[in-house]
Amino acid sequence: MVIDQLFWLFFMTFILLLIEGFYCVTVTYNLFRILIGLEVLIKAVTLFVIAAGYLSGHLALAQSIVITIIVIEVVVVVVAAGIILGFFREFDSLNVKNARRMKG
């Protein structure tokens, strides 16, 4: 019973974080803010993986998966930050609408 309640609590938080992340990615035109939305989505997934590991008694496996997620998150963020800086140098703006002016 307690496990069901806990699962429901984590599930609601997961869904709310997913809504925040998807809304941010969808609505904004700022490249940096798109990255923020992506980060919120990754946080939602991380939370749910740890919660699933805790509830099912596979916490060691969940932790090793979360470490993998964090490593991939860092790689994605660093490369995306590099792309954002390159974009800013080229267009002097972070507005994603400028991507239409890209050539090459």
């Binding site: 940096f32 980060e39 740890i50 916490l59 969940a62 470490i67 964090i70 963020v77």
Partner: peptide
Amino acid sequence: QLGAPLAAVFELSVCAGLISVVFVSVV
């Protein structure tokens, strides 16, 4: 709280630390 200290340390040092530094540098 859930008993995952190793993942917690990774999250704190990498996500709250390193990624924040990258973000602040970009800004």
